[in-house]
Simulated scan of single mutants.
Amino acid sequence: MTPKLVADIQPPYYTAVFTSVRPEAPEGYSETSSRMQEIVRDIPGFLGYETARTPGGIGITVAYFRDLESLDAWRLDTEHQAAKAYGREHWYESYSVHIGKVERSYSFERE
């Protein structure tokens, strides 16, 4: 299966870029990650996400939202807040979050 990128979103929209350092497969992470994916998909205005991880433990997830209200709904979700707190305590060595407004975007896909 070829990975599918998020594309063809009409600007403006917003991104939340989450960059982290953590061990490869900490206990409970996979289950929590799956649950967070379920929750965010139900937020009106959520457009999709892409994620990648290096063998050295650096991960990057970019989530796309139609507007700041939908991004704030994700940030303020109680299960998401609990997962973030647990992650700081048990999984992550460090992380950063960058919020941006996309004013222009384009894509390419080989036929």
Rank of each mutant, 00 (worst) to 15 (best):
T2Y: 14
K4C: 15
K4A: 15
D8K: 10
Q10L: 12
Q10W: 06
P11V: 01
P11L: 06
P12K: 08
Y13S: 02
Y13P: 01
Y14P: 02
Y14T: 04
Y14H: 12
A16R: 06
A16V: 11
A16D: 06
F18Q: 00
F18V: 02
T19V: 03
S20D: 02
E24Y: 03
A25H: 11
A25Y: 08
P26G: 14
E27G: 00
E27T: 00
Y29C: 10
S30N: 08
S30Q: 09
E31G: 15
E31M: 07
T32D: 00
T32R: 01
S33I: 14
M36Q: 07
Q37N: 13
Q37V: 14
V40M: 07
I43N: 08
G45F: 01
L47C: 11
L47K: 07
Y49L: 12
T51M: 15
T51F: 13
A52F: 00
T54E: 09
G56Y: 11
G56N: 13
I58M: 11
T61I: 06
V62M: 11
V62F: 05
V62R: 05
A63F: 14
Y64R: 03
F65A: 04
D67W: 02
E69F: 05
S70R: 01
S70A: 15
L71K: 06
L71A: 07
D72E: 07
W74E: 09
W74I: 10
R75P: 00
L76F: 11
D77L: 00
D77C: 04
T78E: 15
E79C: 09
E79N: 10
Q81A: 15
Q81R: 13
Q81H: 07
A82W: 03
A82F: 02
A83R: 06
K84Q: 15
A85P: 03
A85V: 11
R88S: 02
R88M: 13
E89K: 11
W91S: 02
Y92F: 11
E93P: 01
E93M: 05
E93I: 00
Y95F: 11
S96E: 09
V97S: 02
H98T: 14
G100K: 00
K101P: 00
K101R: 14
K101L: 13
E103V: 09
S105E: 02
F108R: 04
F108W: 05
R110P: 05
R110I: 13
